[in-house]
């Protein structure tokens, strides 16, 4: 049976509770066990640390989808000042699966875009679990065009299972909407930085990832399609998702080795949700540094580097 939920932290917590009970119980005894307990406690932390440094690709997939994981709004609230959300695609509707707006980052006005998962079921239903329709991608197209006009750098947050596979989405040109964004980003005359914060799934995630720099949180993943979908298509068995995840090279570490992720932002032990400010501070520092580097270059140079970065993707024999 495939594990569908990342439950290590729950197991750890119940172990700790039992340990505390035992400690309390021991106080009524005649001999001093404090040394022993201290040693045990350290050992428990070591094992936990080891565990998180050696998560399997599938465990990372599950952790990247964890319901407690910070969502784009958490990052926006923490990293930016003077945030104001802008809505709509000006043709058909407002897609809450992608949030967009303007804010100040380290005193610089920037355009911010991100897939928007909810903090709870209710929010998730409203935001369609961060799975955009064409309107979401057209909002992106509109807001990055606006960013270019006002010379604002663009910062994107990636966290989606993928573009929504539905009737309306197809009728209104999902493929067309994604393609237009994919052609616009490589030529955008402002610096762009993308951060994969959770799960990056397929073309719907890629639409926000064509940037000068791609940062990935250490437990985030980015995949051509979900491991379940790949297993179902290639092996006709979605139940082999765990095995598939190990072949697809989806983790931040694997994608760094492939030259796709430019930088990995280390999450605290237990994942981003265990100590959000610790992670967000580290992310902020990296964003500042990357933005500073990009803004120090001539735009022509930024564009050429970005172009070469994407032009050179692929491995083959000549």
């Amino acid at each position: 049976m495939v594990k569908r939920h990342f439950d290590y932290e729950e197991k750890y917590r119940s172990l700790r509770e039992k340990f505390q009970e035992l400690k309390k119980l021991s106080q009524s005894m005649d001999f001093d066990l404090n040394q022993e307990f201290k040693r045990l406690e350290d050992k428990m932390e070591d094992i936990r640390g080891d565990k998180y440094h050696n998560l399997s690709p599938w465990e990372k997939v599950l952790l990247s989808r964890h319901s407690g994981r910070p969502v784009v709004k958490d990052y926006i609230e923490y990293l930016f000042e003077d945030w104001i959300e802008l809505h709509g695609d000006r043709s058909y509707g407002e897609d809450r699966a992608i949030i967009g707006g303007i804010a100040a980052f380290a005193g610089i006005p920037v355009t911010v875009l991100g897939h928007q998962k909810g903090r709870d079921t209710n929010e998730n239903l409203k935001n369609n679990f961060g799975m955009p329709h064409p309107e979401g991608f057209r909002k992106v197209e509109r807001l990055i065009g606006q960013a270019e006009k006002f010379k604002r750098p663009v910062i994107t947050f990636i966290d989606t299972p993928g573009a929504y596979p539905g009737l309306g989405a197809e009728e209104r040109g999902q493929a067309w909407a994604i393609a237009r964004v994919l052609m616009l980003f490589p030529r955008l005359q402002v610096p762009t930085i993308a951060i994969v914060t959770g799960e990056g799934g397929s073309g719907g995630a890629l639409a926000l990832a064509v940037a000068d720099r791609l940062l990935m949180l250490s437990n985030s993943v980015f995949s051509v399609a979900s491991a379940e979908a790949c297993a179902s298509i290639i092996w006709k068995d979605a139940g082999r998702a765990e095995e598939m995840a190990s072949y697809l090279k989806v983790t931040a570490q694997d994608l760094s080795e492939l030259g796709i992720a430019d930088e990995i932002i280390q999450e605290p032990i237990g994942g981003a949700h265990q100590d959000f400010t610790d992670l967000a501070d580290r992310l902020k520092k990296s964003l500042e540094l990357n933005l500073k580097q990009l803004m120090a270059l001539e735009m022509e140079q930024v564009l050429e580097q970005r172009y070469q970065k994407f032009r050179g993707v692929g491995r083959f024999l000549e």
């Binding site: 994919l182 051509v224 697809l248 989806v250 796709i260 994407f310 032009r311 491995r315």
Partner: peptide, 10 residues
């Protein structure tokens, strides 16, 4: 894997 997804952007 991702090498193929990125062919879209290329």
């Amino acid at each position: 894997g991702m090498l193929s997804l990125l062919q879209m952007a290329k």
